[in-house]
Simulated scan of single mutants.
Amino acid sequence: MPPSSPAPSSPPGSHDPADATPRNEYTVDELARVTDTTVRNVRAYQDRGLLAPPEKRGRVGVYDDTHVSRLKLINHLLTRGYTLSNIQDLILAVDEGHDLRSILGLETAIGGRWSRERPKKYSLIELLQMFGDKASPSALVKAVDLGLLERDGLSFVSGNPTALAAGATMAKEGIPLTDLLDAVRIARPHFNAVAKALVDLVVHQLDRYDADALPPPADVPALVDAIWRLRPLANVLVESEMNRALEEASGDYLGDRVSAIMEKKLAHPAKGPAEERGAARKNKKK
């Protein structure tokens, strides 16, 4: 996970970046992509005061995970039927320092991205170079349907370039790309269930409070720190369990394969040298 440059100062109640891994940083296009919105919406939310402006570095605006979590919150509230005016009132109350300000730190700790992968754009030629003749039109359609690639004009964008590179290496080793994509499709619901269980564990810290009430402001810093500490531990747990399952599955496969070989050998014992010479003489007489 590559480090990024230090982010601007955190809003009150948020996690102190000096005590954590540096935040992800995004251009406006990347921000829109990772939050499943549009650049036009990002600009509109900034104009209405719903989203803080980016940090300016020369002529480039740089966004970070606080913007990601804010956009996720806005999108979630919109899907729940709230209007932009309702959300603007909420944000105004937050920015004016009311008790709702305490949601800011939790907003980033819970809603911020778990991955530090930055989206990367690929031309069709680059994908063909990576996957060779395995990059068939049907495979590209499957990858787009799974969200592993996103069309961007004549190019494609991957939200996880490391996984894409791993898939390309596996394809070059002879694994059919369509089979690999089918495996992702089959495994995804199970990963979703695992993720739900782990997120529930991480945010279990909030269960001591009423579901329709924010924690007291005095409790927020400790809650935020606890959630930030639990997030990487959840990733460790997933990796550990995945390694265990892979070892178990590969061991079972190896055992089954060896058993099949042994059964074949026992059913058809190999002939010794004397038997082979005798068989050869009989064939010669014929």
Rank of each mutant, 00 (worst) to 15 (best):
L127P: 00
W114M: 06
E247R: 05
L198R: 06
A183C: 06
N235T: 13
F131N: 01
L104P: 00
D152W: 09
V199C: 09
D36M: 12
G58H: 09
M262Y: 13
P215Q: 10
L181S: 05
P54T: 08
D29Q: 13
D182C: 06
V39I: 15
P17A: 01
R208E: 15
P8G: 12
T35F: 03
L31F: 02
G105C: 01
K196A: 15
K271I: 03
I87F: 06
L146E: 07
S155V: 05
E126C: 10
P273Y: 00
A267E: 14
S136Q: 13
Y82V: 00
A143R: 00
S259I: 03
S250H: 10
E25P: 00
G81W: 06
N283K: 14
P6K: 14
G167N: 14
A211Y: 04
A187Y: 05
N86M: 04
I175D: 05
D219N: 13
K284E: 15
V144C: 12
F131S: 00
S123D: 12
V68F: 02
V42Q: 01
K121I: 14
E96T: 14
K121W: 02
K286T: 13
L254D: 08
T83N: 07
R257P: 06
T37E: 08
V220R: 01
Y26K: 01
G81I: 06
K271F: 11
G278N: 10
E248C: 01
A93V: 00
I87E: 08
D16C: 03
Y253N: 05
F156W: 11
R113L: 08
W228A: 07
D252M: 07
L266H: 13
V68G: 01
Y122L: 11
L181R: 03
S9L: 11
M130G: 08
